[in-house]
Every structure is written in C-alpha cells, then in structure tokens.
C-alpha cells in the first residue's frame, strides 16, 4: 500500500510516499512561498525518482490545517481531486499533529504551535501514549498565547512542556517569561512538519475514510465576514 502525503498548510512544503514498512521518499523545503507553483512539480519529481506512476498509489493523506487558509486549500483541493481521479481514498491529518510527531518518545506535554497573528496561535496539547506516539489531550484551537500558557501550565502539573514549530521563535520570550525552565525548545531540525509523518498517520485512517467529496479543511475558525454577520444576528 503506497500512500502519497502532502503538506502545504504552513510555510513548509512537504510531500512523501510511504508504505506499511518504510518511507520511500520525501521532499521537504522551507522556502516559505509559492506552494501553488511548486507543489505539483515536487510530487511529479518524487514519483519519477521512485520510478512509479500516480496509478500505483493506493491512498492520499493531506495536512488539513490549521494553518494558512490558502495553503490548506491548495493541499486539500489537490489531494481530493487526485484521489477522485485515481478512485482511491483520501484522509485529512491535523497539521499540528504532524509537528507533534517530531516529539516521539518525549514524556512531557507536547505543544505544537503556528502563529495566527494578533497574539494568537493555532495549537493543541499532545502527550505520548504507551507506544510513545503523540496523542491529543487538549483539543486543537486558536487562542491568545498568553491565555493558552495558563491552560497548558494547569494541564502539565509541573511536567516539562516542549514547544514545537518554526513560529515558536517568535513567541519564545513570552513563553519563557511565563513558564521559565518548564518550557523546552527543540533544535530547529525538529520544528518543521514532515509529510512522511502525515503519510504514516494517514495510512491507519485510510480504511475508515469517507467519500472524497467529504474532505474539507480544518480552519479552526469561521471566516471573518461570517463571524461578524453571526454576531450581528445574535446581537
């Protein structure tokens, strides 16, 4: 079973092919731009290197967000259209969980985060399960970082907290100011999402995949215009 995995949900562009036993290949770049222009060429190049055609794929896994709205849509639109054309299943995997996977084996709280502007972050609280894999403990959300830090402090009960993601660099000072030595930061090579993780996670979900049409992004918030309209209706 060969699964194509795609992540264009944030600044990193990553594509991979995995099977049950191995990661067959992965292309990951952190150029922070032009996912629309570069992604299909990356997939084409990867499959050519692996000497395989798209018809040899048996499933697709895609980072469904949260992240850049446009980036998420490029990945999800591509994944569902390709899956539909090849008549194979497709699943969405959390973009935050993909980053949390980088903390395999870490026993404290795992906090992947992406900057969401205006002091907010997209984040969740993960913890290693018995197999050492990141399991979601506090649901993913968009929240003011300052509020989130109180939430994670309470959940951790003194355990160390590992903050992951390139955007932690932006918020490092605020995190340290609040949490001090309880906060840990990984070397940069652990901060970016890797499509190989998404492919591996997705492989286990493909059996229960719904129809291709049902796959939609996970934005974690309604569009601004819709939020304003809803507020007006209720207010």
């Amino acid at each position: 079973m060969r699964v194509l995995a795609i992540d264009t949900s944030n600044l990193v562009l990553s594509v991979a092919v995995v099977d049950e036993k191995r990661v067959l290949g992965e292309i990951t770049t952190n150029l922070q731009k032009n996912h629309s222009v570069r992604m299909m060429d990356a997939i084409s190049e990867l499959l050519d290197d692996l000497d395989m055609g798209p018809e040899e794929l048996s499933g697709i896994a895609v980072a469904k967000g949260p992240g850049s709205y446009t980036g998420v849509r490029i990945g999800v639109s591509t994944a569902k259209s390709m899956a539909w054309s090849l008549q194979i299943p497709v699943v969405g995997v959390s973009s935050l969980q993909a980053v949390a996977m980088n903390a395999f084996g870490f026993s404290g709280g795992i906090i992947p985060l992406f900057d969401a502007r205006r002091g907010q972050v997209y984040t969740g609280y993960y913890q290693a399960d018995q197999a050492g894999l990141a399991e979601l403990v506090l649901e993913e959300r968009i929240m003011l970082l300052t509020d989130w830090l109180s939430v994670v402090k309470e959940q951790a009960k003194g355990a160390p907290l590992l903050f992951l993601g390139d955007d932690t660099a932006v918020h490092r000072e605020s995190i340290l100011a609040d949490l001090g030595e309880q906060a840990l930061f990984a070397p940069v090579s652990f901060n970016h999402p890797r499509a190989a993780h998404i492919g591996w996670l997705g492989q286990k979900l493909l059996m229960q995949a719904g129809t291709v049409h049902e796959l939609v992004p996970e934005y974690l918030q309604v569009a601004e215009a819709e939020a304003k309209w809803l507020a007006k209706q209720n207010g």
Binding site: S44, P54, T70, S77, T78, S81, M82
Partner: peptide, 19 residues
C-alpha cells in the same frame, strides 16, 4: 479572486497529473 482561482487550478493540475 486569487483564493478562489487557486482551488480550481489545484484541482485541474491534480486531475491532469493523475490522468
């Protein structure tokens, strides 16, 4: 609208590549 265009373009490229 760029965000709107990108959905169709991504879908078309994916179908073109798959087939």
């Amino acid at each position: 609208l760029v965000g709107a265009l990108l959905v169709g373009v991504a879908a078309a490229k994916a179908i073109s590549f798959a087939r």
